[in-house]
Amino acid sequence: MRLFRNLSVILLSFALAAPAHAFETSARAAYVVDVTTGTVLLNKNADTPLPPASMSKLMTLYVAFEAVRSGRLTLDERLPVSQHAMSFGGSTMFLDTTDRVRVEDLLRGIVVLSGNDACVVIAEALSPDGTEAGFARFMTQRAQQLGMTNSVFKNASGWPAEGHVMSMRDLALLSRRIIEDFPEFYEMFAETEFRFDGRAPSNIHNRNPLLGLGIGADGLKTGHTQEAGYGLTGSAKQGDRRVIFAISGLDSMQARARESEAIVNWAFRQFAQKSVVKAGEELARAPVWMGEAATVGLTPAEDVNTLLPVLDGGELKAEIVFTGPVRAPLAKGDVLAELVFAPADLPETRVPLVAAEDVAQGGFLTRLRTVSGLLLSRLQQGPEGTL
């Protein structure tokens, strides 16, 4: 017997907030997320793979942080500088082949000074085959494991190379992992300057234009090449809220600074955290196939919060989407549906809904009633109804 399953939609309405005003960005691609609630505030070409320039150094840093955490590197360990590392131009620590540099200095050299040479030193130390190219392949594999599906690395520094790409969503995801997985290292990203061994007095300042503005900015990484334009992957924390964003393709340092500050101010000033529904609160009941109960409650496993405009009034339209009827047996906590909502001018949010209670498989009489009902339904439909 064939079970007929249909996509079911239950419409809901929450009296919460008025429409928001969308942020119009001049960036080629942008992604802004409120980490505290998971609310995506801006998505413009966020899944398009683009040249990330030095913002891809965040992946080199993540792998290096993992190596220190696991003991494969130590902060006081001194690493040699190869001719290949020394050969890089652009932003550097001005290392040469006579140096042996502490890992901690290399990390700060990457975070604060965006040192291309420092990236290569780290890469060659951690590469499976001792080469930067081998390290780039490893980074690509590790990125896939982290869920970064639009990232491919050809080098450790973001130096222009065909096929070296990341999406803005991937950069935001990576930033969150750095912040949450390595709080002991994340403090480096707020440092405004780093002086290494008295060298390069012209390259001691962090290029992040948001640091020191008093808006809660504490990271992460700028980037610029001719192909990529000017970009920034940033984060700021105010009170209990944290916002992470990634932008790319701006035409100047000044435009990058203005756009980044405007995004942070918009995200914090124009939105407030609101409760949509509490964990365990039943929102609807879904029909159950072959169960001891005819329906099962649908509820979020955790409190559902979102960001909404600061002005009160209006309604938030939402819907519950599931493929039904759901088939017994069901265990409390099984994911059965999604709550989907999208405040005006914001990308939609999707929240899993779970079974509110167990539903055992029905016995013989239940199955008999179900089959009889299905037969009757099909007969009423006429000859096109099939079993």
Score class of each variant (00 low, 15 high):
Asp312Cys: 11
Arg350Asp: 07
Val304Gln: 01
Ala328Leu: 15
Gln361Cys: 08
Val371Cys: 03
Leu336Trp: 04
Gly313Ile: 15
Gly313Asp: 02
Gly313Cys: 06
Arg369Gly: 05
Arg369Thr: 01
Val371Pro: 00
Asp345His: 12
Asn305Gln: 11
Glu338Arg: 08
Leu346Met: 13
Thr306His: 10
Leu308Glu: 11
Thr306Trp: 09
Leu308Thr: 15
Thr370Glu: 14
Leu307Ile: 10
Glu348Tyr: 04
Ser372Asn: 12
Ala328Cys: 15
Val326Pro: 08
Val326Trp: 00
Ala356Lys: 02
Val354Cys: 06
Val304Glu: 01
Arg327Met: 15
Thr366Cys: 09
Gly333His: 07
Leu311Ala: 14
Pro343Thr: 00
Arg367Ile: 12
Val371Phe: 07
Pro325Asn: 02
Glu357Phe: 09
Gln361Tyr: 02
Arg350Met: 02
Lys332Tyr: 10
Leu353Cys: 05
Glu319Ala: 11
Glu357Asn: 10
Thr323Gln: 04
Ala318Leu: 08
Glu357Lys: 12
Pro329Trp: 01
Phe341Gln: 00
Leu307Tyr: 01
Ala356Arg: 00
Gly314Asp: 14
Glu315Lys: 13
Val354Gln: 01
Glu348Met: 11
Leu374Pro: 01
Val340Ala: 07
Thr323Val: 11
Gly363Leu: 12
Val304Ile: 11
Pro325Leu: 06
Lys317Asp: 13
Leu308Cys: 15
Ala328Lys: 05
Leu374Ser: 09
Leu307Trp: 00
Leu307Pro: 14
Leu316Glu: 03
Asp334Leu: 09
Ile320Cys: 13
Glu319Phe: 04
Glu319Val: 13
Ile320Lys: 09
Ala318Asp: 11
Asn305Leu: 15
Leu339Gly: 09
Phe364Gln: 11
Leu316Phe: 01
Glu338Gln: 12
Ser372Ile: 06
Ile320Phe: 07
Gly313Glu: 01
Ala331Asn: 14
Ala337Val: 06
Leu336Phe: 08
Leu346Lys: 12
Phe364Tyr: 12
Phe364Ala: 10
Leu368Trp: 06
Ala318His: 07
Leu374His: 07
Asp303Cys: 03
Glu338Ala: 10
Asp345Glu: 12
Thr370Cys: 05
Leu339Lys: 02
Glu302Phe: 03
Ala301Leu: 13
Ala318Met: 08
Glu315Ser: 14
Pro325Trp: 02
Val359Ser: 07
Asn305Phe: 14
Leu339Trp: 04
Pro329Ser: 05
Arg350Thr: 01
Ala344Tyr: 02
Leu368Gly: 04
Val326Asp: 03
Leu365Lys: 05
Leu339His: 05
Val326Ile: 09
Leu316Ile: 14
Leu368Cys: 07
Gly313Lys: 00
Val351Pro: 03
Thr349Ile: 09
Pro343Asn: 03
Thr370Gly: 07
Pro347Val: 15
Leu365Asn: 07
Ala328Ile: 15
Glu348Trp: 03
Lys317Arg: 13
Pro343Lys: 02
Gly363Cys: 08
Thr323Asp: 03
Leu307Phe: 02
Ala356His: 02
Pro343Tyr: 00
Gly324Phe: 02
Gly362Ser: 10
Ser372Asp: 12
Pro309Ser: 13
Ala328Val: 15
Ala360Arg: 10
Arg369Asp: 06
Pro309Glu: 06
Leu316Tyr: 00
Lys317Phe: 12
Thr366Lys: 14
Val359Glu: 05
Val359Asp: 04
Phe341Met: 02
Leu307Glu: 09
Phe341Val: 03
Gly362Tyr: 08
Lys317Ala: 15
Ala331Cys: 09
